[in-house]
Design a protein around this nucleic acid. Structure first.
Length: 570
DNA sequence: GCCGTTTTCGGCCCGACTGTTTTCAGTCG
């Protein structure tokens, strides 16, 4: 599959053309095409062979011809020429706040600056201030931006942003002049990584809100402070943007700032077709600016002929079309989970006793909890020997009798060995209430090896669940190269449930794979992989991933009662 | 460069804030 490679090439072309000064509509067309390719389920080479490229939205004659050339010859002359004109390395300059294509072009054309290193030096030597459109403040801002970039490396894991965001909201709520308040942006959509935290407020006294906002103790630096918009950087390095709007615009603004950008562009297109204009202040008649809606998001969507679309779905992956046909999924709710089946105890590498975990699970309101410790060969995680397995099962049965109001199940996170066999013989596996199989060592595998290894494990009659199926660690380790179509087919065939691992650096399966798996009829289980009772609340990030993957309650087995669950995992 | 139940040409989402200007371009979301 060359999809990813080709999508990235077109994103790069768009950036380079921006710097070259090409009209924005053209570069946007390249980005839309690139996004279409990136989201594609099918192999683009197949579409080239079948001459079906131009059927894709956003891909016309010119781009189709370029894709075909690239697939057939392995390179694209247009791109090669462009790279000679403008060095690709220059694109890293765009990542610095306050630098866009125009300024980067000036820096390159006038001073020959191509790298962040060169830019830093030029700023320190005061060489930028004489350029048109630049000044001393620009130099200082650029230096500050470079420092920040060096420190944060871009994006943050969902849980860090979520926890910071909620604490900030609590602080802001102390102010009585705040009327309504909500998280917006990618954090409200619960994306797996977050660039910055967006907060939206309605208030009759914006100035007071802004002043209170910048007094939050964690604020390290104020980036901008205006009447309706203020941005700060927290001690953690994360940026927080606050917008204040009038009450009658709150819903429209919340919709607007929640995004995604692609969802909004699509939505605004619908507004225009209906003779409206949609912006952060509301929905208006296009001709006379008459206010139509804007107090709530529901109202805005309704006037556009749509049901309410939950934030997690707003990625322009077909939710608007589904909404227009009244065909949106009734996605799983955050309160629908009745238990967590993947929790480690002190028997292996967890930090809490089974009793403590059970009591905490009961406190959360779960109906059951599954204690799944590592298997024997995973020595670094103190995997359990066969003898220990028997002892642990005894302990669990006793505790299950002793503690009322929570069912305690005994599982295992059994290692899948290099050849696809399992780390316990079937005579041991059958003692557990359920078996979670997962790959923990030997990550260097070809697509075929990784796929076959996983499939072989699924074929074992005692395997109930595949843990973190693609093995990725966000920002640290790539996914295995798996043939997901084959995995989904096998999961349905063998009644194996695929895990949505809710640990914030895993979120594996991810949203895209959930959506695709569902189309095959795959059933899922959402587990935290907690190693401490403090990790049990991570469940919400797994549910969010399921919601982003269009999953409904019936697609997820741990929404079932204990009685029904026992029937399907036996 | 893409697209079309107003259009095969002429549109393409839109407003706030900053810094450099002295009325506005560029960036950002």
């Amino acid at each position: 599959m060359k999809n990813k490679e080709i999508a990235e090439m077109f994103f790069t072309i768009a950036d380079l053309l921006d710097i070259k000064g090409e009209i924005p509509f053209k570069t946007r067309a390249y980005r839309i095409a690139a996004q279409t390719i990136a989201d594609l389920d099918e192999d683009i080479e197949k579409l080239v062979r079948e001459k079906k490229l131009e059927e894709l939205p956003g891909i016309g004659k010119a781009i189709a011809k370029k894709i075909t050339e690239y697939v057939e010859t392995g390179s694209l002359e247009f791109y090669e020429k462009l790279k000679k004109e403008i060095p690709v390395g220059i694109l890293e300059l765009l990542e610095i706040p306050s630098l866009g294509p125009k300024k980067v072009a000036t820096l390159y054309n006038k001073l020959g600056i191509k790298t962040i290193e060169e830019l830093k030096k030029a700023c320190e030597e005061g060489k930028l201030r004489d350029l048109e459109g630049f000044g001393e403040i620009t130099e200082r801002n650029i230096l500050r931006g470079i420092k920040l970039k060096e420190k944060t490396q871009g994006r943050f894991l969902l849980n860090l942003a979520y926890e910071n965001g909620m604490r900030y909201i609590d602080f802001l709520k102390q102010l009585s002049s705040i009327d309504k308040i909500s998280i917006a942006g990618s954090l409200r959509r619960m994306k797996e990584t977050i660039g910055d935290i967006d907060i939206l407020v309605s208030s009759k006294n914006p100035e007071e809100v802004m002043n209170h906002f910048v007094e939050y103790p964690q604020v390290k630096q104020i980036l901008v402070k205006g009447k309706t918009k203020t941005s700060v950087i927290l001690e953690d390095g994360i940026q927080v943007d606050l917008r204040v709007v009038e009450e009658r615009s709150f819903g429209a603004a919340l919709q607007y700032f929640t995004g995604s950008k692609e969802h909004n562009v699509n939505l605004r297109g619908i507004a225009i077709k209906l003779g409206f204009k949609l912006n952060e202040y509301g929905l208006f008649e296009k001709d006379n600016d008459r206010y139509i809606a804007g107090r709530t998001e529901e109202e805005v969507y309704r006037k556009l002929g749509l049901p309410y679309i939950p934030p997690e779905l707003r990625e322009n992956r077909g939710e608007i079309e589904a909404g227009l046909e009244n065909n949106l999924p009734d996605i799983i709710g955050y309160d629908d989970i009745k238990g967590d089946l993947h929790v480690h105890s002190i028997w292996s590498d967890g930090v809490n006793s089974i009793e403590d975990i059970a009591l905490e699970a009961k406190e959360i309101g779960y109906e059951y909890i599954g204690i799944s410790d590592h298997s024997q060969s995973l020595h670094i995680a103190r995997g359990l020997s066969e003898k220990q397995v028997s002892e642990k099962i005894d302990e669990i049965r006793k505790l299950d009798d002793k503690i009322d109001g929570i069912g305690i199940l005994c599982g295992t996170e059994c290692d899948i060995k290099q050849d696809g066999s399992l780390d316990y013989p079937n005579s041991v596996l059958k003692k557990f209430d359920f078996v979670i199989a997962g790959i923990h060592i030997g990550f260097k595998m070809s697509r075929e090896e990784a796929t076959n290894r996983t499939i072989k494990a699924m074929e074992n009659e005692y395997v109930t669940i595949v843990a973190h199926p693609t093995g990725r660690l966000i920002g640290r380790r790539e996914s295995f190269d798996l043939d997901m179509d084959k995995i989904f087919e096998k999961a349905v065939e063998t009644d194996t449930y695929l895990e949505i691992n809710a640990f914030p650096d895993r979120l594996d399966l991810n949203d895209v794979n959930c959506k695709k798996g569902k189309e095959y009829g795959v059933k899922f289980v959402i587990n935290t992989d907690a190693h401490s009772i403090n990790h049990l609340p991570y469940m919400k990030y797994g549910v969010a991933t399921a919601r982003r993957g269009w999953l409904e309650r019936k697609d997820v087995i741990n929404t079932m009662s204990l009685k029904d669950l026992k029937k399907v995992i036996q």
